[in-house]
Design a protein around this nucleic acid. Structure first.
Length: 539
DNA sequence: CCTACTGCTAC
DNA sequence: CGAAGTAGCAGTAGG
DNA sequence: GGATGACGAT
DNA sequence: CGGGGATCGTCATCC
């Protein structure tokens, strides 16, 4: 029975339920997850399945399926953690991978870590819409869907500027950092200001469910959040939200089709232009399809193509020849010559259909849930967004409280320092030892700052000689004034105001950077074998 | 004393 | 799991 | 209409 | 610098 639940292809649903129960059991109690019974010299297979194996399936899903909070898989989160905490400037990818492995107790081969890092820095159409890491070197292209990247040794990454606008430093105190092998590692999840699972999409195959989310333009996602945040009533506005997939740098069209009986489907169209009676130019192909794949498709339409199937002859025209005149990988140009009758045929079918430039895909998703990391299914991008919204909003209240607390402590610090300086100036307090100072501060009614040393007065005791100077007084007064104002503003701000501000700043940053990745020419590395492969175009 | 070659490391 | 190449150096055999 | 392969972290 | 194998679930595409 259990055996079937674990492995049978047609018992998927039972497997899902079984895994949920297992993960609840394992998380609630400290149940031993090892099936070894010391009184026996064998292991019962159903004990093994209930313990180690169910654990394995859960871990497997944790690795493969992203969290709905930050859209990251565990390994990607490790990379982001290491990048935000310790990556200064450019670093060779193989070196950086080593750093991540050490810093975050990654228990697998560092070559796999390199792959994850490379994936997070890719920018070609169809990869990331917003790459969290900035690439230098050949990270792969549309020619081979990113597989044509150089070896990690020849690649460099640094933290992308925009990343800090998505993952705010102000939220750091709200994160729950995990512990592995006694080391503090990456958090359970990050708290991005937009649902990154939608922005960069994912495909991942877990046990009991997989996840397959297309990319969405970050601006679309931001605007959808604005709709919720700025609208008159959040509850009413959520029905008016509509999202469709989008790929940065993609020139074709993306349409959401509602005609399908099984869920929502999405259709992506490339671009084709009729130049003359006998010439067609293809300027864009759907993301997910590589240039190499498309080239071999065109080759299969040539008269001398061997074993061309009957169905292919029905669907596609026969072409005389084609040339590849791409300016770069973002400006494609396949020039196709065909005779008039085949052109007629193509026209009749529609150029896009006739040249295999239409790609359909379903829009369905599976995620990890919040508190207990359970697989949870979402029906569509809109539901993903609103669920993210509901989960994320409370953290803004928490952030506000943290910031206010920090500010009020800062205020005490400034007040105390002013009092202290004045008291010293008047000779009320003289140089004395720590104990006596603390007693004096308490006697004079200074407020202690929680966790500021044992006494709560370390901020005064540890003042440097320069800071102790009465000349600092005007500066401190000015500082107090500024802080006072900022505190008032913060107190007045609603939670959603904080979020709106984050989004506005992000949107501005996006506008500054948005153009850049598309203009950037592909950089080549002399040692890359990929660059050699790419120089040969056409038939 | 110079040359040709080997073995070795680090890439 | 496997393979290839390079430069630069020291040491050595041979002429 | 059923088989097949691609996706990505391991 | 290169190659191969496997799982897991979904879905588009192939014949």
């Amino acid at each position: 029975m259990t055996l079937e639940i674990c492995f049978a292809k047609d018992k998927l649903n039972a497997r899902k339920i079984w895994m949920l129960r297992a993960s609840n059991l394992q998380l609630q109690s400290d149940t031993e997850i090892v099936a070894v019974d010391p009184t026996e010299n064998f292991i019962r297979y159903y004990h093994f399945l209930e313990k180690e194996f169910s654990r394995f399936l859960i871990e497997d899903s944790l690795c493969s399926v992203p969290s709905m909070m930050d859209g990251l898989k565990t390994t990607q989160r490790k990379v982001l953690f290491a990048a935000m905490e310790g990556l200064k400037g450019k670093k060779r990818v193989d070196e950086f991978a080593g750093d991540v492995v050490n810093k975050t107790v990654y228990k697998h081969g560092s070559s796999h870590m390199e792959g994850t890092i490379i994936g997070m820095a890719q920018t070609f159409v169809g990869s990331n819409n917003v790459n969290l890491l900035h690439p230098t070197g050949q990270f792969g292209s549309r020619y081979e869907g990113g597989k044509d990247h150089s070896t990690a040794y020849y690649l460099y990454v640094e933290l992308n500027d925009i990343t800090k606008f998505i993952f705010r430093d102000d939220d750091k105190d709200l994160l729950e950092f995990l512990e592995e092998d006694g080391k503090l590692v990456q958090p359970k999840w990050y708290l991005p200001v937009v649902p990154m699972s939608l922005v960069n999409g994912t495909t991942g195959i877990g046990s009991g469910g997989g996840s397959n989310i297309p990319n969405h333009h970050m601006n679309d996602v931001i605007n959808a959040l604005f709709k919720l945040l700025r609208g008159p009533a959040i509850a009413e506005d959520r029905n008016s939200i509509s999202l469709k997939p989008g790929y940065r740098g993609f020139k074709g069209r993306v349409e959401k089709s509602t005609d399908n009986e099984r869920g929502i489907k999405c259709t992506i169209y490339g671009c084709a232009t009729e130049i003359s009676d006998t010439v067609v130019e293809i300027n864009e192909i759907p993301p997910g399809k590589t240039i190499v794949e498309y080239r071999s498709f065109l080759q299969s339409l040539m008269p001398d193509a061997c074993n061309r199937s009957e169905s292919s002859k029905m669907k596609y025209p026969t072409i005389e020849c084609f040339q590849e005149l791409h300016e770069d990988e973002n400006n494609l140009r396949f020039k196709i010559s065909l005779d008039k009758s085949n052109m007629m045929f193509a026209r009749k079918r529609g150029l896009l259909e006739a040249f295999n430039l239409v790609r359909k895909m379903s829009v369905e998703t599976l995620y990890l849930l919040d508190e207990i990391q359970e697989l949870r299914q979402f029906d569509n991008a809109e539901e993903t967004l609103t669920t993210f919204f509901d989960m994320r909003l409370p953290y803004y209240a928490a952030r506000k409280a943290k910031l206010l607390e920090r500010m009020s402590n800062d205020m005490i610090r400034i007040d105390n320092t002013i009092l202290y300086l004045e008291a010293m100036d008047k000779g009320e307090i003289k140089q004395m030892n720590r104990k006596k100072l603390v007693a004096k501060f308490t006697e004079k009614g200074y407020k202690a700052i929680p966790n500021d040393g044992d006494s709560g007065f370390d901020h005064l005791i540890n003042l440097s000689c320069d800071e102790r100077d009465i000349e600092c007084l005007p500066n401190l007064v000015a500082e107090r004034e500024g802080l006072h104002q900022r505190m008032e503003e913060m107190q007045k701000a609603r939670d959603i105001d904080l979020w709106i501000k984050d989004l506005e700043e992000l949107q501005q940053k996006l506008a500054e950077e948005g153009v850049e990745p598309q203009k950037r020419k592909v950089e080549r590395t002399s040692a890359s074998s990929a660059s050699d492969k790419r120089t040969r175009f056409g038939p």
